[in-house]
Nucleic acid binder design. Structure first.
Lengths: 180, 180
DNA sequence: GGGTGCAGTGCAACGAGTTGCATAGGTAGG
DNA sequence: CCTACCTATGCAACTCGTTGCACTGCACCC
């Protein structure tokens, strides 16, 4: 139940509408906590009812009105309560592991090709993250507080993708050698 | 929708009851596709109705009867169909990233302690996986087919935990230095 | 002129996963 | 002796997340 809190963090960084939050999730927080606009709208309404956020309706020309949300004092209190609360460590959940484990039940090469496909996709993500790192954090040693935290989160994404790609390479190599 | 397929893989390796499958998930496949006994029971019934598995009721003394499931021809067909079907790569989803991003909104040290806690838990998991590796796969170069696949899946778990622990160390180091 | 994409909100239905509980006898430990 | 856990199944209720759709109007490209 952390989408509420992910939204609180995002809104603390900057106020925004549901739509705008969904875009931001696509580009940053969503790398670590994906969410669709649907989910965000529903949760924002719930948070509004709970008093964690307040909204201001903004009339616009040519396009629909929007509701811009900001975090209330209660929301900030809830966020700092949650930050201090111990969280269960996340678990892995990747169907590729299941497929690999069942690889001998498919035609030869089928799972190998799937691993290669996943490798390519993760390598692409890694490229994206590295690009962000080069562009936004060229001098990591100088970073403090918020900027530092954002950088470290990105580092987590980079490390995760790197290790996934390296694993794929190990798997691809082993599967090729196993087939004479 | 891969729990069905995870169960098919597990049942192909060895027939079993719902309960027994739940135990096995706790100890092996569940490292990559966690599932509770509840979920497994429900999905097994659905799979039975769909004809992917068949069950035999086995009377026991002193304890409840059990239903032992085995994969049918239709189940094997479905499994090989699924294995050949491209899967969307898994996404990261870890609340620790959200907490880190919101670290400056909590009292100093609160998030640092949480990262340390997670590091410890992931290090423990890593130890468990390494133990399994030493015990079950002392000579990885000799492995083939099923054994090789199982080993490679385990390697994925090890790499993921290693990289998570390394990231935690980077974060802990950076957070300590940032606080004068 | 028609398709696509963006901005903006939202409903309705579904599927996946979690939690609490119930039943029932056996076995182990404080 | 009582608590707690193990084997074994299952119901009920819930939360969480996904997918498909609807409406409006502008801008862009072919």
């Amino acid at each position: 139940m952390a989408l509420e809190h992910a939204i609180l963090v995002a809104l603390t960084e900057r106020d925004g509408s549901g739509y705008e939050l969904a875009r931001r999730f696509d580009r940053s927080i969503g790398y670590f906590w994906p969410a669709t606009h649907q989910q965000i709208y529903r949760v924002l309404r719930r948070m509004d009812e709970a008093g964690w956020v307040r909204h201001t309706e903004i009339a616009q020309e040519g396009r629909p009105d929007k509701k811009v949300y900001r975090v209330s004092a209660a929301g900030r209190a809830e966020l700092s309560r949650w930050l201090a609360e111990p969280e269960d460590p996340a678990v892995l959940r990747d169907a590729l592991g299941v497929k690999l484990r069942g690889a001998s039940l498919a035609k030869p090469g089928v799972v190998l090709r799937e691993v290669e496909r996943h490798r390519a996709e993760h390598a692409t993500r890694l490229e994206v993250y590295c690009g962000i790192q080069r562009r936004d954090f060229p001098k990591p040693a100088k970073l403090h507080d918020r900027d530092l935290h954002q950088y470290l989160v990105l580092r987590g994404g980079i490390r995760a993708e790197e290790s996934f790609v390296a694993w794929c390479d190990e798997v691809i190599d082993a599967l090729r050698k196993d087939k004479p």
